[in-house]
Amino acid sequence: MDLILWRHAEAEPGVPDLERALTVKGQKQARRMAEWLGSQLPDNCRILVSPAVRTLQTAEALGRKFKLMPELAPGAEAEDILRAANWPGNKETVLIVGHQPTLGQAAALLLTGEEQDWDMRKASAWWFSQREPGDALSVYLKAVMAHDLVVK
């Protein structure tokens, strides 16, 4: 199984939190990262998105179908991310579009077995893979990509 964690792009400040939209800069960040992801993701990739406006707008940049999942909203736990993705038992690639600190905590959990507060930059994607299907202990970090590294 491959699991990609994609943090939403830059959003406007304000409240309510779920209604914060991407800035113009954030829209550009999302498009650049979507360009890279779109060239890498398999056609059957399952895309799961937090219901926040900023994650919805980030995911829309991909131009693919996705599913909104309330359990991925701000304040979710790292375990919620893994459960939504059906980690490690899923056979397909899953892309999660979500928030900090949850995505960083999920990344730490995947690689170290412990929740830690790892920082994940806005609009960046961390791609995890397993050497042995279904074996959570065989996970490795396949790629980390930032929107500003995408070559046009």
Results as ranks from 00 to 15, higher is better:
26 G>F: 01
93 T>F: 01
61 A>S: 11
26 G>H: 03
54 R>Y: 06
136 A>T: 10
4 I>Y: 12
27 Q>E: 13
136 A>K: 15
77 E>P: 04
143 A>Q: 15
123 A>P: 08
127 W>L: 11
58 T>S: 14
134 G>I: 10
93 T>H: 00
62 L>T: 06
139 V>H: 09
49 V>N: 00
54 R>V: 08
148 D>I: 01
93 T>M: 03
4 I>G: 05
128 F>R: 06
46 R>S: 14
152 K>V: 15
35 E>Y: 04
65 K>M: 07
25 K>R: 14
26 G>D: 01
13 P>Y: 07
8 H>Q: 07
139 V>C: 15
143 A>T: 13
12 E>L: 06
80 D>M: 04
21 A>T: 10
139 V>N: 13
65 K>G: 14
92 E>F: 00
93 T>W: 01
93 T>Y: 05
29 Q>V: 03
61 A>T: 08
37 L>C: 01
22 L>I: 04
101 P>E: 00
91 K>N: 09
90 N>Y: 05
43 D>Y: 09
136 A>R: 14
107 A>C: 01
77 E>M: 11
53 V>D: 02
145 M>T: 14
66 F>H: 10
43 D>R: 15
138 S>R: 15
53 V>M: 05
108 A>P: 12
52 A>I: 02
39 S>P: 01
76 A>E: 04
6 W>S: 00
138 S>E: 14
23 T>K: 02
125 A>Q: 11
147 H>Q: 06
99 H>F: 05
27 Q>L: 12
17 D>N: 10
20 R>G: 00
50 S>G: 12
34 A>M: 10
116 Q>F: 07
59 A>T: 08
113 G>S: 08
44 N>A: 13
126 W>E: 03
146 A>I: 01
148 D>H: 01
134 G>L: 02
65 K>F: 10
44 N>I: 05
64 R>C: 06
99 H>L: 04
93 T>A: 09
72 L>M: 03
134 G>A: 11
39 S>Y: 04
19 E>A: 13
104 G>S: 04
16 P>R: 06
73 A>E: 15
74 P>D: 02
